[in-house]
Amino acid sequence: MSDQILEVRDIHTFIGQFHILEGVSVGVPAGNITVLLGRNGAGKTTTLRSIMGLTPPARGQILFDGKNIAGKHPHAIAQMGIGFVPEHRAIFRELTVHENLQIAERKHGDLARKSEFIFDLFPDLQRLIDLPGGNLSGGQQQMLAIARALVPDNHLLLIDEPSEGLAPVIIEQLMAAIKRLAETCSVLLVEQNFRVASRLAQQYVIIEEGHSPASGEMGSLIHDSDLIQRYLGVA
């Protein structure tokens, strides 16, 4: 068995009549942070949603812990141990912070067991525990979205654009938290902010127009200005 917790092999995904992913392959080594890089509309979010079963691929394989999960229902995929932190957080605005965490329990007592770790990672949430999710700031909502994915025993977290729209000081806090939680599970991250991505991830995969033309060690990408310029438009 390979040391990769997730292997996405040549997936093709359609949204309506549009062929969004035209053969994307992604490997996520166990215990690492892997980042999907690419311009807006390249297919990064669709890749995460395809893994999660929310926009299931029409063909291709998605192996999680060696088992093909392509075509399974989202709830079944989540129950196998994949946590999802979507773009724009998807916090339940009418539910309190506590209820937002409680709903993520897969076994009774998950939250009680994990609360010390979660509140150590995001101390603000303990203070806001009885507030409705809709009353939280953008940064607090992002913390809650990540915390929610930590309640059950997930082996892989899919995190979509965690730094989007947040102040630099909040981004620093989130980065520190993601680094710490990556000690307990593998992470596949979508991140537009290359500076943030390069500091967090050990591996990268570039997504470009529904394909995955390049991947490798983040350390080598940082020094490859041609690749960065060609696919990310970052000087």
Binding site: A78, F84, I103, R106
Partner: peptide
């Protein structure tokens, strides 16, 4: 929660 965001409820298992 489902009234607000059905998809996210599924993604929570």
């Amino acid at each position: 929660a489902g009234v607000e965001d059905r998809e996210m409820v599924q993604a929570l298992g």
